[in-house]
């Protein structure tokens, strides 16, 4: 579904990605694991056009997207949920969802606020509350719901478990499994190995802007050397 090869990514003049490659299959949940500063977030941003790519190719369902502007990538069906959530704090919950709304896709029931409220029951009670007056966990739900309003076929989640209470982290894991059941592919960046194990089918271990390990979650758990080299502090 998504194949990225040999990405060189830049923040201004500083190179962050050095030949990063990865792939996500249809209906798969893939996790990018790695330490702080390894290039996980930059990889996700480069896929949606938020980071300048010096070289490399990205194909989404056969379409080359590495030179497309962000809004075209989003309309093709890649949803991006940023690490810092970036809720529109002046807008209400319903208005935040409205900004994310895009036309339905053939072959899939479109996401509506009502369906999303089933998925995130907390949000249903605060339809008219401004985004700025929500807790961190509620904002995390809203930012995912907002992205789903675009009916993406692949969702990029940047550190969804970061800074959340354990009970919310569990809810997040349930959400990701629900998305998978709905046929939505997920690519997430994570530092939390336990969370990754609970949701992911496959893993890429990222270090210094490139993929050092690619394989199933079970293979990674069996490879103590790979874990020690790139994950443990």
């Amino acid at each position: 579904m998504l194949v990225a090869e040999n990405l060189d990514g830049f923040y201004g003049r500083a190179q962050v990605l050095f030949g990063m490659s990865l792939s996500v299959g249809a209906g798969e949940v893939v996790v990018l694991l790695g330490r702080n500063g390894a290039g996980k977030s930059t990889t996700l941003k480069s896929l949606v056009g938020l980071v300048e790519l010096g070289a490399g190719s990205v194909a989404f369902e056969g379409t080359r997207i590495e030179r497309l502007p962000s809004h075209r990538i989003a309309r093709l069906g890649i949803g991006y949920v940023p690490e810092d959530r970036r809720i529109f704090t002046d807008l209400t919950v319903m208005e935040n969802l409205e900004v994310g709304r895009q036309p339905a896709r053939a072959g899939a029931a479109p996401w509506t606020p009502e369906r999303l409220f089933d998925l995130f029951p907390n949000l249903a009670a605060m339809r008219d509350r401004p985004g700025g007056r929500m807790s961190g966990g509620e904002q995390q739900m809203l930012t995912i719901a907002r992205t789903l309003m675009g009916n993406p076929r692949l969702v990029l989640l940047d550190e969804p478990s970061e800074g959340l209470a354990p009970v919310i982290v569990e809810e997040m894991a349930r959400t990701i499994r629900t998305l998978k059941a709905e046929g939505v592919s997920v690519l997430l960046a994570e530092q939390n190995l336990h969370f990754a194990r609970a949701v992911a089918d496959r893993a890429h271990v990222v270090e210094k802007g490139r993929s050092r390990f690619a394989g199933t979650m079970d293979a990674l758990m069996g490879d103590a050397a790979a874990r020690a080299a790139f994950l443990e502090v």
């Binding site: 949606v48 056009g49 938020l50 502007p69 962000s70 809004h71 989003a74 309309r75 991006y80 940023p82 970036r86 529109f88 704090t89 002046d90 807008l91 208005e95 935040n96 900004v99 994310g100 895009q102 907002r146 992205t147 309003m149 675009g150």
Partner: peptide, 14 residues
Amino acid sequence: RAATQDREMVAVLG
């Protein structure tokens, strides 16, 4: 109003 706050995010939303 959303773009006034964060136009990049608006673009990423399509």
